[in-house]
Simulated scan of single mutants.
Amino acid sequence: MTAASRGSGRRLVIEADGGSRGNPGVAGYGALVRDPATGRVLVELAEPLGKASNNVAEYSGLLAGLRAVLDLDPGASVRVKMDSKLVVEQMSGRWKIKHEDMRRLALEARDLCAEISDAGGSVDFEWIPREKNKDADALSNDAMDGKSVHRVLAVEGDGETDSMTDAESLAAQGISDVSTPQPGVRPLRLLLVQEPHDAGAAPRIVAAVRRLVGPGTRVVGADDDLATRVAADLALALDVEADTSGDWSGQTPGEGADERVRTAYHSLAATGGTVVAVTSRRGVLSVLSDVLGTPVGRFWALATAAGSLTAVEVWEDGSASVAFTNRTDHLA
């Protein structure tokens, strides 16, 4: 976080919902971020979850809303409004969390809240009746109908509310679409995909990646069978060729960072563009430790899950930042 992002003074409202037709059954979540001063919706999100419970869907909507706030303004004061009494009371610390799935999701949500707090912002929770949560409910129903939504609807100061292209959407979130850079500017936007446990997760990974990258994206990856399969599926979806090699395997002998992965990462930073890299947990951490300057003794301290997404940006002046880590909502 930069010093400028600390305590921005901006206020944002998250409205989130989730549902399951069958409980557990066909599930999905919806979330939006609103400017409470104008009532203007800034971001709309919806995502199918496959078969899941209503509570998992509700928590997934909360997680999506918190991530959207971190993209928009991590130093904002945030009010979360939901019609799930369970989620509101658990996140407020008044109700115990007994179910393991709920505990995992609640911990992830608390981590996101902590990121906002660390940036000088704050998060509080408010229960609202269902009739006052209609916009998020409509998005969650879209998700249960199989629709994915990721729309940035307004840019501060633009004077109008319009749907945006993928590139405009990324720019509004402070993420450059470097597949179409400005003259003389060639930053790197690297999306790291941690190799999943099995190929069954590949379609969900592909769907999540396609929402984050656009035309001109390169695909690289490790050369073991599973990583090659995932990289090939991603390349097919993006209409490119995958480039797999041992450079991204993260299997070089030794502890801590894999220098082959770091060398491959530095090579990408030198050429820029938008790149998706399929690698191991050690591969992901090798890049993150390079960006963050993580001490060797803390190399394994950052949690990342199989099939998760992590994004790193390297700017034209050589400075680098971590846009997000360990996104797993597409796997829920």
Rank of each mutant, 00 (worst) to 15 (best):
E58Y: 02
G121F: 05
L72Y: 07
R79G: 04
R130F: 13
K96G: 04
E131H: 14
G65R: 09
D71K: 12
L139P: 05
E100A: 09
R103A: 15
G121A: 10
E126H: 13
D71I: 06
V78M: 11
E108V: 07
D118Q: 12
W95S: 11
P74V: 07
A57K: 09
D135N: 12
A68L: 07
A57F: 08
K81F: 04
A64Y: 07
K134P: 01
D124H: 13
D111T: 13
L63W: 06
A106V: 10
V69I: 05
V123L: 01
M82N: 01
V87D: 02
Q90E: 05
L139K: 01
D83S: 11
A138C: 06
A57W: 08
L139H: 01
V87W: 00
D124G: 09
D111F: 03
K98S: 14
W95D: 09
L63H: 06
H99G: 05
E108W: 07
D137V: 03
K132I: 03
R79A: 12
R79F: 04
A143W: 05
D137W: 02
P129M: 11
R94Q: 12
S60G: 07
V80S: 01
A68D: 06
I128Q: 01
L72M: 10
G121V: 12
R110G: 13
S117W: 10
R79P: 00
D142H: 13
L62C: 02
